[in-house]
């Protein structure tokens, strides 16, 4: 009888630990992406479109490389939405459209912030 209870407690603790690890992992991914996007934005502001393209493409590659993980833990709708934001951003950078890029960067950043925020334990997210 005792073994079952120990198993149940271990299972609950294990599940909770995995969920907290997931929060940490998503946060790390978010921070890495935002860092790359910030560098890309700085390049745009200084007129370095090649640099902006490089950093934006690095960010997109980093996001795509995280796919095996994100597809297990995040709703696919959110992942697709995020990928679409990246494509829109790259499109504006390739066109060297400053106005378009100015709108696209916050959109991508906000999207990744929302994805990370949805995994956090807050009153708002739980209820």
């Amino acid at each position: 009888m005792m073994k079952k209870e120990i198993f149940a407690i271990a299972l609950l603790i294990g599940i909770f630990a995995i969920t907290l690890l997931n929060v940490h992992k998503i946060d790390t991914l978010k921070n890495e992406l935002i860092e790359l996007l910030s560098k890309s934005e700085e390049c745009v502001q200084s007129g370095d479109w090649d640099g902006a393209t490089e950093f934006a493409e690095k960010a997109m590659d980093h996001w795509n490389n995280a796919n095996p993980y994100t597809h297990i833990f995040i709703r696919h709708q959110e992942i697709d939405g995020m990928t679409e934001c990246f494509f829109n951003l790259l499109q504006e950078i390739y066109k060297e459209d400053s106005a378009g890029v100015q709108a696209a960067f916050p959109k991508v950043a906000m999207r990744i912030e929302n994805i990370a925020h949805m995994e956090h334990l807050t009153i708002g997210t739980v209820f």
């Binding site: 597809h71 833990f73 696919h76």
Partner: peptide, 23 residues
């Protein structure tokens, strides 16, 4: 579009809760 874990984690959680409640 919902990850499988979204269904499995509640099931395992409920299983563990039920074991503890009945114990």
């Amino acid at each position: 579009g919902i990850p499988m874990l979204n269904g499995l984690i509640p099931i395992f959680t409920l299983l563990a809760c039920e074991i503890l409640i009945s114990a």
